[in-house]
Design a protein around this nucleic acid. Sequence first.
DNA 1: AATGAATGAGTCTTCATTCAT
DNA 2: GATGAATGAAGACTCATTCAT
Lengths: 187, 187, 187, 187
Amino acid sequence: MDKKEKITKAAIETFLEKGITKATISDIVKKAGIAQGTFYLYFPSKLDVMPSIAQEMLQVILASLDEKANSTDMDELIEQMVDVVFDVTREYRELSKLIYAGLAQTTHIQEWENIYDPLYDWIEDKLHQGQENGQVRKFKNSKSIAKIIIGTIESSAEQLFLYNDNHMQVNEHKNELVQFLRIAIKK
Amino acid sequence: MDKKEKITKAAIETFLEKGITKATISDIVKKAGIAQGTFYLYFPSKLDVMPSIAQEMLQVILASLDEKANSTDMDELIEQMVDVVFDVTREYRELSKLIYAGLAQTTHIQEWENIYDPLYDWIEDKLHQGQENGQVRKFKNSKSIAKIIIGTIESSAEQLFLYNDNHMQVNEHKNELVQFLRIAIKK
Amino acid sequence: MDKKEKITKAAIETFLEKGITKATISDIVKKAGIAQGTFYLYFPSKLDVMPSIAQEMLQVILASLDEKANSTDMDELIEQMVDVVFDVTREYRELSKLIYAGLAQTTHIQEWENIYDPLYDWIEDKLHQGQENGQVRKFKNSKSIAKIIIGTIESSAEQLFLYNDNHMQVNEHKNELVQFLRIAIKK
Amino acid sequence: MDKKEKITKAAIETFLEKGITKATISDIVKKAGIAQGTFYLYFPSKLDVMPSIAQEMLQVILASLDEKANSTDMDELIEQMVDVVFDVTREYRELSKLIYAGLAQTTHIQEWENIYDPLYDWIEDKLHQGQENGQVRKFKNSKSIAKIIIGTIESSAEQLFLYNDNHMQVNEHKNELVQFLRIAIKK
DNA sequence: AATGAATGAGTCTTCATTCAT
DNA sequence: GATGAATGAAGACTCATTCAT
C-alpha cells in the first residue's frame, strides 16, 4: 500500500472517530504510521483528503446497485434501489455524515458533482429501459428525474439513519417511499 | 434585543463571512458588541449556536409558506411549495450550507428534528385538506409522505443552489420536480 | 448560621473536592447558596479563608486530646497522644493536606503559629506534670521539646496517611514511634 | 543541557520568583529560551515539573550528607545530620516550600516516596553501623526509625525556617533536638 | 447588605507547518 | 523521499472582580 492510500485510510478512520473538525493531522499520521512531515508531501491540507473519501463511498453504492438492483420490473427495481441506498447509508452511516459535512467545508464541489455523475447515469439508463418496456412514463429531462429520485431516496435515508429521531418506523416509511416513487415514475 | 439573540445574529453573520471552521468566538463577540466571557454565559461553544440558527432559517421558510403557498388547488400548491423552498434556499444559500455543515458537526440532531417538526405538520395539514377535497390519494402514513416531499424538494434545491454545477437548467428541473410530486401525490 | 460560617463550610467542601488551585470562588458561592458578590463582603480572596479552616482542625485535635489523652503515666500518655494525632490525621486526611498546602500559599504564617500555640502549651503542660512525677527528664527549653514532639508525631502521621506508599505497616511504625518518644523524653 | 533539564531549571527559578500559583508556563518557557509548545512535549502541565524539582532538592541533601555527615561517633553524626538538613532547608527555604506546596497539589505522591527512598536508606545504613559499634540500640524496624528521624529533623527545620515566628532561638532549639535524637537512638 | 450578569485580562493549549538531519 | 522535534501564532476558555439594581 503506498503512502497516499495509507493516508486516505487513516484519514477515514480518524474522521469517523473524531469528526472532521476535531481530527488533527497529527492523529492521521500517527494512525498511518508515517512522520508528521510526510503528510505534506501528498496532501496540502486535511480537507483535501475528502474527495478520495467520497469516491470510495460512491463506488460502494454503485457496486451494490449492480449486484442487487437488476430487476427488469420497475416496481421491483425501485424497491431494490431504495434498499441499496438505505443499506449503504445505514452501514456507512458515519462515513456518509462526514462526506456531507466535509463537502460543505471544501471547495471541491465540482469534484463532488463529477463523482456523482456515474450514479445519475446508472439511474437514467434504468429509466430508459423502463420506458422501452412501457413501464415508465416519458420525461422532458430524464437526467433531472434521475437526480430527483436519488435526492428523494437519500433524503429519506438521511432522515432515517443520520438524523434519526427513533420515532420513525423504518419499514413503514420505506413502503411509503417506494409507493411514492412508483406512482411518480410509472406510466 | 437580549444577549442570546444578539449572539445568534452575530454568529450568523460571522459564519457567513468566514465559514464555520474559520469563524472564531472572538469574531462573534466583537460583532455582537459584548465581552468574550459573556458568550460562555449563553452558549458552551461555537457549534452550540447552530440550533438557534436553524430555528431562524425554518421560521423564514414557514412564514414564506404561509404567505405564498395557500392555493386550495393541489397542483398549484405543489408548485408554490417548490417555489418557496427554492427561493429561500437560493436567497439564504450560504445560511443553508452552514446549517447543513453545522448540524453534521454537532450532537444536536434531536433538536434539529424538533425544529423541523412544524414544517412537517404544515405539509401534513395541507395533504389532509387535499384528501378531503378528493385531490390527494390516501396514505398509510402521511407524516412519512410529508417528510418525503420536503426531502425531495430540498435535495433538488441543494443540487441546484448549493452544489450547483451550472449545467442544470433551473426551470426545466423545477418543472420536472413539480410534475413528479403532483403525480406521486394526486389521486 | 451566618454568611461567614456558610462560606467557610462551603470552602472546606470545595477545597476537598477540587483542591485549592482548582477550586473557584464561583464553586464556593454556589455551594454556600449565596451570590457571587457576597463572598467579597466577607473575604478578600480565596486563600484568606484558610486560617478559619486551620482553626477548625486544631480544635478537633485539642478536644480529642482532652478527651483521650489524660493518663498520668507518661508511657501511656505518649501512646495516647500518638493515637490521637494519628486518628485525627487519618480521619481528616484531606483536610490536613489542604491545610498544609494552603499555608504554603498564604501569607498567614503568623496566624498559623498563633493557631498552633495552644497545642504546644498543652504538651508543655503535660511535660511539666511528668517532670514533677519524676517520669520525665529535665529540658533546657520545654517549648522546643513540645514542638519537636508534635513535629515528630505529625510527620509520621503524614508519611503514613497522607503520603502513604501502602508498604508501611501502620502498627509496626506506630510502635517504633511510641518507643522512640518514650526513650527520648523519659528520665 | 537537554530541553527537559532546561525546563526544570527555568521552572525552579520561576516558581521561586513568583510562587507556584502565579507562575505561568509562559514565564517558564521564556526563561528556558524555548517555544511555548515545546513545554508540552516534555510536561503535560505546570505541576508535573514538581517531581523533577524534588529530585534535585534531595540530591543536594544527599550530597551534603555524604560530605559533611560522616563521623563514626553517633553523637557527632546526629549533630552533623541535623546541621545538614537545617542548612539545606535554610538555604533552599523557598525551594522547600514550593516542593511541599507543589506535592500537595499533585498526584505524584508515589513518585515522592520513591524520590525520598535513598535518603531513608542512607540513614538506615548509618544506624546499622552504629549498632555494630555498640552505640545504637536495636530496633524492630530500622526503616521506620529512619523515617521518624528524618521527619523529626525536617519538621523542626520547617518550624524554624519556613514557618518561623522569629521567637524561636535557632541554636537553643537545635541543641534540644540533637539531644532528643541522641537519647532516643543511643543504647 | 445582597445580588448575579457582565466583564476582559490573562492563561492554557492546540496544531498546522517548517526544516535540519 | 522521509523524518519528527521544534515552533509560535492563534484561539478557546476561565474566573476574580465589579457595579447597577
